[in-house]
Design a protein around this nucleic acid. Structure first.
Length: 436
RNA sequence: GGAGGGGUGGCAGAGUGGUCGAAUGUACCUGACUCGAAAUCAGGCGAUGUCGCAAGGCAUCCGUGGGUUCGAAUCCCACCCCCUCCGCCA
């Protein structure tokens, strides 16, 4: 959510920045709402003030045992006007809030201007794709190895669900879990992030309430992208589309001590996305699923440190790719391609030989105070006053897509997969995965 | 699921219809004392919104939402959450 003051005092600027995102701010509608709000609020609060003053007089008169009937008659005359004013305000304010809540964040000045993904700017390339003659994709490779079963996923749940088996499942676990078994790759990811990067591991609920979804910006605008679980009492829970939601909401409604920042969390969770509106996209393979695992990095920082933190956090995600020796590129999303809540986003795209292109495997964003304002997440600043903190997050990494990248980049001519050296401790020392 | 208890400021904890945004303690800030610190003493210290050039004023907030009343932290209704015990359960 944007700062309402910025709209009041600098509406043309806000509209101009939003226009870069392809969003047209209805400034006339805002000004009308604001004028109405001001008129009603001043009027109603004035009536409330008079009522309060007179009521206090009644209390004082009665305390002294004097007659208060004249004052009581006077205050009774305020009743109707007050009720009308309060009712009008109660009707207006939700409309006012709804208007604000649907406005996306303003892009940071360093964000390249563009209208869609073609406007994104490559910041760097790391690694050189290995020359692979006639590369096979992860579907062929995984199916041939008996480790990916797309038909089973369809039978059990439907399109965009996959079953993993055997050593591929273990490879995925190696890429995902920390302490479930003796050695896993997510343990490697989590070890890297908790050990070398200073993050605290958290385990969170996978079902969250609407307030949490509002806090990070998924609601109210993007409900169709979520899986909703109705409760017997009429309430709702949502399956998390990313660990960003439960982890960031850890600080919702809190006023943190200034010296507790920055907070850095890492969480491994499944992620659930309905993928509404992407019916024809990436229908083959594991690229776009309703359920996938992700290791997520989240930071809460002081406002003056969030831009440094974004570079740092992105570097942490890059380190995973570098240790896996997967070629990737780092892209600064342009104004027209950024998500609703982000002020700036870097995507990391990993090389996929079978697609002969780079595909998104991580998205790292600084939300500045946009989420914090929705969540009322604050810290005590130098003046001991509550101040909104800044939030950031990034995938470190999406595990399913990392598995795809490992299968495709480490494939051998005979269809076997070389296990990346850094993963072998979590694969029982295995150097290769081959058929039977 | 059953029975009981409870949700008040950063924390602890008073307050059961009126001068209560709320005693007190603690934390924190400022000052005094000190070479400095601790201790002690004095003063200050909630949040949000809003009006105003400013000084400052006003409104709202005592789990949430309704209601009663001239007036609600306090009374009524519903809901949420926490704690204790019993039952059930991985």
């Amino acid at each position: 959510m944007l700062d309402i003051q910025s709209l009041r005092t600098n509406l043309p600027f806000v509209a101009e920045r939003l226009a870069l995102r392809g969003v047209t701010l209805d400034t006339a509608a805002f000004e009308a709402l604001e004028a109405e709000r001001k008129r009603l609020q001043v009027h109603t609060q004035d009536l409330q003030a008079r009522r309060n003053t007179l009521s206090k007089q009644i209390g004082m008169l009665k305390g002294k045992g004097e007659d208060a009937s004249a004052v009581m008659t006077e205050v009774a005359g305020l009743g109707d006007a007050l009720k009308v004013g309060e009712a009008a305000l109660a009707e207006l304010m939700p409309r006012f809030d709804a208007f604000l809540e649907l406005i996306p964040n303003l892009p940071h000045e360093s964000v390249p201007v563009g209208k869609d993904e073609t406007g994104n700017v490559e910041v760097l390339r790391w690694g050189t794709p290995r020359a692979i003659a006639a590369p096979r994709d992860h579907v062929d490779l995984g199916t041939a190895l008996g480790g990916l079963d797309f038909e089973a996923g369809v039978k059990i749940s439907g399109a965009r669900f996959t079953v993993m088996k055997g050593r591929i499942a273990r490879l995925h676990r190696a890429l995902t879990q920390f302490m479930l078994d003796l050695h896993t790759l997510t343990q490697f990811m989590l070890d890297l992030h908790t050990g070398e990067h200073g993050y605290t591991e958290v385990y969170t609920p996978y079902l969250v309430n609407p307030e949490s979804m509002f806090g990070t910006g998924q609601l109210p605008k993007f409900e169709e992208d979520l899986f909703m679980v109705p409760r017997s009492d009429g309430g709702k829970l949502y399956l998390i589309p990313t660990a960003e939601v439960p982890v960031t909401n850890l600080v919702r409604g809190e006023i943190l001590a200034g010296d507790s920042l920055p907070l850095k969390f890492v969480a491994h969770t499944p992620c659930f996305r309905s993928e509404a509106g992407s019916y024809g996209k990436d229908t083959r393979g594991m690229i776009r699923q309703h359920q996938f695992d992700k290791v997520e990095l989240v930071q809460m920082v002081r406002p003056d440190q969030s831009w440094e933190a974004l570079e740092q956090l992105t570097g942490h995600a890059e380190a995973v790719l570098q240790k896996l020796e997967l070629p990737y590129r780092k892209v600064a999303l342009c104004t027209g391609d950024m998500g609703f809540s982000a002020a700036k986003t870097y995507d990391l795209e990993v090389w996929l030989p079978a697609q002969n292109t780079y595909r998104e495997i991580s998205s790292c964003s600084n939300f500045e105070s946009f989420q914090a304002r929705r969540m009322q997440a604050r810290f005590r600043n130098e003046k001991n006053k509550p101040e909104l903190l800044h939030t950031l997050n990034g995938s470190g990494l999406a595990v399913g897509r990392t598995l795809v990248a490992v299968l495709e980049n480490y494939q051998n001519e005979d269809g076997s997969i070389t296990v990346p050296a850094v993963l072998r401790p979590w694969m029982g020392g295995a150097e290769k995965i081959s058929a039977a």
